[in-house]
C-alpha cells in the first residue's frame, strides 16, 4: 500500500527562501538549499520549489538552486513558478527536477499541459491550482474558482471543471491550493480537497492552511488527499517533519517511517 506523503513547499525568490501570508508580504527566511537538505535528512517524502521571482532576468538563479538541491537531496523534487513552455520545463528537468508544476500559464493556455505531458511524460506534470471560495453560480457551479498570478487575479473558471480538464489533458497529479486558507494555519480546506480528490483518478496534494499536525491528518483522511503540503509550520521551526510523520503514523496512517 502506498504511504501518504508529507511534502514541504519552499517559495524561492531570487534564490532565497520566502514565505507568504495569503500570497502577499513575502518575507525572507533563509537558504533554500540548507532547508531542503535539513528536511530531507529529517524524513521528508517530497520537496516542492516554487519560484516567485518577479523579474525574468533573475530566473536562471532558480536553475542553480534546483541543481544544487538535486545533488544533495535524493527524494522527488518538484518545481513550479513561471513555466510557460516545454523549453522552460525541460531546462528544469535537466537541472534535476523530477516533476514540473504548471499553474497560471496553463490557465492562460491549457494546451501547455498537453505539450508538457507529451514531451516529459504525464507522471512528471503537476497541475497546480490556486482556488478561492465563491458563491456557487452558473459559471462556477462547484462554488470554487481558479485564481492566478499568485492568487491576485480571478479567472471565472470553475475549480472542479479545471481539475477534470487538467487530468484529461495529461496532468499526472494535482496540487490544490486554497488561497483562503493559505498562510492562516487554520487548517486545509477539507471540502475543496475532498471534492476534487473524489472526482479525479490522479493523486492530489492538498495545500494551504496547515498549522497543526491534526490538520494533516484531517486532509489525508476526510479530505481524501494523497499528500499534505506544509510550509510555515516547518519553516519557522514550530514542527519538525519527522514529528509530523510520527504523529500521522501514531494515528494509524500508512507513513514512510524509515529513512
Amino acid at each position: 500500500m502506498l504511504s501518504k506523503r508529507v511534502v514541504a513547499c519552499l517559495d524561492v525568490r531570487d534564490g532565497h527562501l520566502a514565505k507568504s501570508v495569503k500570497f502577499v508580504n513575502t518575507q525572507n527566511i533563509g537558504d533554500p538549499i540548507e532547508k531542503a537538505r535539513e528536511y530531507y535528512l529529517d524524513g521528508l517524502d517530497e520537496l516542492v520549489f516554487y519560484d516567485i521571482t518577479a523579474s525574468s532576468d533573475k530566473r536562471n538563479i532558480m536553475l542553480d538552486v534546483v541543481e544544487s538541491v538535486a545533488s544533495q537531496v535524493f527524494i522527488p523534487l518538484s518545481v513550479g513558478g513561471g513555466i510557460r513552455s516545454v523549453a522552460d520545463a525541460t531546462d528544469l528537468r535537466l537541472a534535476g527536477a523530477e516533476k514540473i508544476n504548471v499553474n497560471s500559464a496553463a490557465v492562460a493556455r491549457p494546451d501547455l499541459i498537453n505539450e508538457c505531458s507529451e514531451a516529459l511524460g504525464d507522471q512528471n506534470i503537476v497541475l497546480s491550482m490556486d482556488v478561492r471560495r465563491v458563491e456557487a453560480n452558473a459559471q462556477q457551479p462547484s462554488g470554487f474558482e481558479i485564481v492566478i498570478n499568485g492568487g491576485r487575479k480571478p479567472t471565472g473558471r470553475d475549480a472542479l471543471a479545471w481539475a477534470l480538464e487538467g487530468e484529461k489533458r495529461g496532468a499526472g497529479e494535482l496540487v490544490v491550493n486554497s488561497i483562503d486558507a493559505d498562510g492562516t494555519r487554520d487548517g486545509y480546506d477539507i471540502p475543496l480537497t475532498a471534492m476534487i480528490a473524489e472526482a479525479v483518478r490522479i493523486p492530489v496534494i492538498a495545500s494551504g492552511g496547515a498549522g497543526l499536525p491534526e490538520h494533516l491528518h484531517d486532509v489525508l483522511t476526510r479530505g481524501k488527499a494523497d499528500a499534505a503540503l506544509v510550509a510555515s509550520m516547518v519553516h519557522y521551526g514550530d514542527y519538525r517533519v519527522s514529528g509530523l510523520k510520527q504523529y500521522l503514523h501514531d494515528q494509524g496512517l500508512k507513513i514512510r517511517m524509515s529513512w
Binding site: 500500500m1 502506498l2 504511504s3 506523503r5 507522471q123 483518478r201 490522479i202 493523486p203 499528500a227 514512510r256
Partner: peptide, 12 residues
C-alpha cells in the same frame, strides 16, 4: 476505486 494509476509514491 481509490487506487490510482500511475502507482506513484513511496511503498514498501
Amino acid at each position: 476505486p481509490e487506487l490510482k494509476i500511475p502507482h506513484m509514491g513511496w511503498n514498501e
